[in-house]
Nucleic acid binder design. Structure first.
Lengths: 194, 194
DNA sequence: TTCGTTAACGAACAATTTGTTCGGTAACGA
DNA sequence: TCGTTACCGAACAAATTGTTCGTTAACGAA
């Protein structure tokens, strides 16, 4: 019995298709990209595409999930979590910078929306739990924790988007510093007084 | 010479089409809605649709622009601007609540993305100018004003989105209060020290 | 190296969807 | 009342989607 998933041909094809989508994303909007465009760019047969993915959306989702998995690993990695911040945002910014083409394609197009749909639950849960831990016992937060979590996750995505759209005029360190400066006062204020 | 734009039939048709799109947006994703769906729901001929709009995107954009115009008027209306906030967010939340179906359709689907594309320039410029006025002379802000503006606009959209997606569990007043509590500390902190 | 497995090809296919055209009908407004 | 014009609806080419299937060749285990 041969291993289906590790077949060189399969992996090669999937890589070609993904790269093709990423490349096309730099040129035009996600909605304007057809399956034909993708398979032409990837130099792959039509039936081959549909053997790997249900449709264009499926391809995009799979790429996004792969991305989020990487981010999740970064977030859960214990060494990354400092005392000053809730998320290892500097590492996140650095990682994004390294793979900017990938992220530029993802965050644009349908990426942002899918990011919200698929990812927000995860981030919200994690952030809500972390915030709960930070909250002194018996304290009622000034702003409900789910709202605060949404705010933080949203702020990160907003900054990320701005950074990518504006050709990354600041370093990851600077971006992280700014983000912390914007978020943490609110967090402190909200957790302090009921 | 008869007035083309104020013809009862035209306005009626446009209203039908817009309402059809909004109704369909409650049921399925923007991408899954076809022009056929729209004209069926609006009970309008195919050629009629294309007489009014170039394509589906054009229809969406026109609705969004109409929306933003309303918001812009609210923002520029002098009575709305209080001393405590940069945007009349409470009025904005109230307005959204009144027209929730419209906004729910818009903010979902492609709305959010278009909102960013079309609207961010406007909000950013306005917010940047307002922030500049608040900044003491000669002061260098801790965070560049365009970044701060982006952050504020993004936070508003984020909260709005959360509010709509979660069936609006809080009143506009409460939402406004929370948003101010989240944003203003950062603004104060950033404008104070260089 | 051999050999069975299987991924890729590519052409052909029906089904949708898109955007346009045009002649006839009826609603509009001056 | 009457000229204008928005709407209809059918028909159209073009593009796109997702599937099928016989053939070829790359793969990997023995």
């Amino acid at each position: 019995m041969t291993n289906l998933k590790t077949d060189r041909r399969s992996q090669r094809t999937q890589r070609f298709i993904h790269e093709a989508l990423m490349a096309l994303m730099q040129e035009k909007r996600y909605d304007d990209i057809t399956v034909q465009d993708i398979i032409d760019r990837a130099d792959v047969g039509r039936s081959t595409f549909y053997a790997h993915y249900q449709d264009k959306e499926d391809l995009m989702t799979s790429g996004l999930l792969r991305l989020m998995q990487i981010l999740s690993e970064m977030v859960t990695k214990p060494s990354a979590m400092g005392e000053t911040s809730l998320l290892p945002t500097q590492e996140l910014f650095e990682h994004v910078q390294e793979h900017q083409n990938l992220f530029r394609g993802m965050v644009r197009g349908r990426g942002l929306e899918l990011f919200f749909e698929k990812g927000q639950e995860y981030w919200n849960q994690k952030l809500t739990a972390d915030l709960q831990a930070l909250l002194p016992k018996g304290q009622v937060p000034a702003v409900p924790l789910p709202v605060l979590a949404q705010f933080i996750a949203g702020a990160f995505v907003t900054m990320l988007r701005w950074w990518l759209d504006n050709k990354m005029p600041y370093s990851p360190q600077e971006m992280d510093e700014m983000l912390q400066r914007l978020i943490m006062p609110a967090v402190r204020e909200c957790l302090r007084e009921g």
